[in-house]
């Protein structure tokens, strides 16, 4: 009974909240679509938080996405034990890097005076939600291995059934509790999207990859020329 609500209703609610909230925020408060970067306020610890976190989470999210979008390709990628172990170990390392980075970011945010001054309650909620989600994911991948393999035949059919508007909860209803919790907190994080700095996800400046370098010059320097 709970399963129907948790795995067939809640995901849709989360997506609806994210889409409607996101569109509303974009129409009413467009310039708030930002990471609210605090790099100018604190730069040293940011590096050891932001870099491992972003590289880690991007790789891990891509793995989730590829498994979901082209399950056949992914399952042939993990088809032999050696290939499976390799994929899993790469995933573990990047996932762990993301976890380390996230912890550094949390410590930095709540111990640096300058950062604390620009911290909103939503920043705290988001950081805790992400920590729970990433820690659960890491624990699931380690203790309920090999997720890279069984993900394709449990969570993916469920997600596909959600996308095709024909939710089938039986694919996931018998999975262990941490696995189900990881799925649910995933949708919780999605629902936080329009209310937090997560909005920067869809504002990623891809053109940075091919635009020319910029030189920034401070024109208030008195002694210039």
């Amino acid at each position: 009974m709970y399963d129907v609500f948790l795995f067939a209703v809640l995901p849709y609610l989360a997506i609806v909240v994210a889409v409607i909230g996101g569109v509303h925020r974009y129409r009413t408060n467009r310039f708030s679509y930002s990471t609210l970067s605090s790099q100018l306020l604190e730069n040293r610890r940011l590096f050891w938080g932001s870099v491992p976190w972003h590289y880690g989470i991007v790789v891990v999210l891509l793995a989730h996405m590829i498994g979901f979008l082209v399950p056949g390709m992914w399952s042939s990628l993990t088809s032999t034990p050696t290939a499976l172990y390799t994929v899993e170990l790469i995933g573990f390392a990047f996932g762990f890097a993301a976890l380390i980075g996230l912890c550094v970011l949390i410590v930095r945010r709540f111990t640096t005076e300058r950062i604390l001054a620009v911290t909103s309650p939503m920043d705290g909620i988001l950081l805790v939600a992400l920590l729970v989600q990433v820690a659960l994911g890491f624990w699931v991948s380690l203790a309920y291995r090999w997720g890279a393999d069984w993900y394709i035949d449990t969570a993916v059919p469920w997600l596909i059934s959600l996308v095709s508007l024909n939710p089938q909860t039986h694919y996931v209803s018998a999975l262990p509790l941490p696995v189900k919790a990881h799925m649910l907190t995933g949708f919780l994080v999605i629902s936080l999207f329009p209310f937090s700095r997560l909005v920067h996800l869809i504002m990623f400046p891809f053109w940075y990859l091919w635009r020319p370098y910029q030189i920034q010059i401070r024109n208030t320097v008195r002694s210039a020329h």
Binding site: W48, P52, Y55, G56, E88, L89, I90, F92, A93, F94, G95, F96, A97, I100, L142, R145
Partner: peptide, 14 residues
């Protein structure tokens, strides 16, 4: 063993 290798991998990334 897996946790050890994972930690090693993450340290290498850092």
């Amino acid at each position: 063993q897996l946790a050890g290798l994972t930690g090693l991998g993450a340290v290498i990334l850092l």
